[in-house]
């Protein structure tokens, strides 16, 4: 593994929603195998960043660049980003009535295989694979026959995201508050699932508010995002510090950031 190779490189990223600037110059580099966590107050722009990476259209990028494996992500359609290995586990997974979960998963998997010029999985092979992954995540097989996320409990929805993650086997997983809504046992299971998926060259960008997820998935870096800017980056101990002191003591940093911006 080449430690210097960049998987994801975000440079000076500015983005607006409805003409309001939400991201104000994000700098972030993720190398293969690294785990990054983003923490920050509500409304600071964490999900916006995650959604921009996945190709959500309502967030408009006004400045800056995002490169994934040296390719310009910003010109790629959402499905192409997915096919190239970017995966977003949604903070709020969408319910899709009438679309069978197994059918959806198989379509997603085969779309990806097709883009890689691999043979499509037939129903039997797909089911075999799905059953193994379901078991790893301690999920009931019946979830395959339900409509995508429809009527799922909060925890089931989050688990369904991770099921998709381990089935699709992306290179970069963006986890937007995957821990929220999971009970203590489910959190352990989900974390174990993610750790099992994560090989040496797979990377993770996870958004979280709590230390508890970081207990199971140890980050290499923690970034603090406040008002659309990364105001502090540290090691895994930064989270504990934040948990004790809150974001308040970073206000001065934030003020400096705003001050710099004005100048």
């Amino acid at each position: 593994m080449n430690q210097n190779r960049e998987m994801l490189a975000i440079k000076n990223l500015h983005a607006c929603i409805n003409e309001k600037e939400i991201l104000k110059g994000i700098e972030l580099t993720i190398r293969p195998g690294e785990i990054h966590a983003i923490m920050g107050p509500n409304g600071s722009g964490k999900s916006t960043l995650a959604n921009i990476l996945a190709g959500r259209e309502y967030c408009q990028v006004t400045q800056g660049s995002i490169m994934f494996e040296n390719q310009n992500v910003l010109t790629m359609a959402p499905e192409e980003r997915a096919q190239r290995g970017i995966f977003l586990a949604f903070q709020y997974p969408v319910e899709i009535p009438g679309v069978n979960n197994a059918y959806f998963l198989k379509a997603a998997l085969n779309a990806q295989r097709q883009s890689l010029h691999e043979a499509e999985l037939d129903a039997v092979d797909f089911l075999e694979l799905a059953k193994i992954k379901l078991k790893e995540l301690h999920m009931d097989e019946s979830i395959l026959q339900r409509s995508v996320n429809e009527g799922f409990s909060g925890g089931e929805k989050k688990k369904n995201e991770i099921l998709q993650l381990v089935m699709l086997n992306p290179k970069l997983a963006i986890l937007d508050e995957t821990d929220s809504g999971l009970d203590i046992d489910a959190l352990k299971i989900v974390a174990a699932g993610i750790n099992a998926w994560k090989k040496a060259d797979r990377s993770v960008l996870m958004v979280t508010h709590y230390q508890r997820l970081l207990d199971y998935i140890t980050p290499d870096y923690i970034h603090v995002l406040i008002q659309g800017k990364i105001v502090k980056t540290g090691g895994k101990n930064l989270a504990l510090e934040l948990e004790q002191k809150g974001y308040g003591n970073l206000d001065s940093l934030q003020l400096t950031a705003m001050h710099e911006q004005r100048q």
Binding site: G55, A77, I96, F104, S115
Partner: peptide
């Protein structure tokens, strides 16, 4: 939202 969700999994629009 549902369309984006499906696309974000690699499915063509």
């Amino acid at each position: 939202e549902a369309l984006f969700y499906l696309q974000s999994r690699g499915i063509h629009p």
